[in-house]
Amino acid sequence: MGVIGKRVAYYPGCSLEGATRAYDVSTRIVARELGLELDYLEDYNCCGAMESKNVTFMGTLLLNARNMSLARKQGHDVIVAPCNGCSFSLQRAEYFLQTDSKIFERVNSLLKEGGVDLLDKIPETYHILEWFYHEAGPQKVKEKTKRPLRGLKVANYYGCLYTRPHFYARTYSHAGGQSEEARPRRRETADDDEHPYYMNALFEAAGATSVEFEPMHTQ
């Protein structure tokens, strides 16, 4: 416990400030109750999601590099994102920046051109679930639960990009990439690839019952 850090840069992403406002509000409340601190990433921009990535490689990388640069400016080396798409995009950018020095140099020069601070260090991005699990954990959730979810059957749906692909998030292990040791912290904190359980554990700690609906829970 406690590998990621109690105070992190918080990247909510566009949707959390629009249609899924409830997610944003809940996240902040839960973090506060669990004694964790989210440092709102001022003036962030869209991660580009899957769409921009399909249109422009370098453009998408730049979008995420700008957010990383903002996090560094606010003094963080960890970003937490509650959205699967956002955390994926940041992790993907991290992967390409880490594994290809040419790309890293080009991105930095473009950041400079765009009036954004250079990336002195590439921050790591975590999904908020991992952060909750490792920095608070089921025990803390249990303690802090005021209205237990007893009798509530919860189907925990993690979504595609919560654990995938491990190349981006954790191992970097493909030919030409760096060694598996590149991100020991990330490897330690990651949820199980094929059978994620962090959400199950946290909800069960809050008193709910998890229902199994494999194999669809990460489809």
Partner: peptide, 10 residues
Amino acid sequence: KFKQVLRKVV
């Protein structure tokens, strides 16, 4: 300013 760089790259 950043937008212009982005547009150029795209």
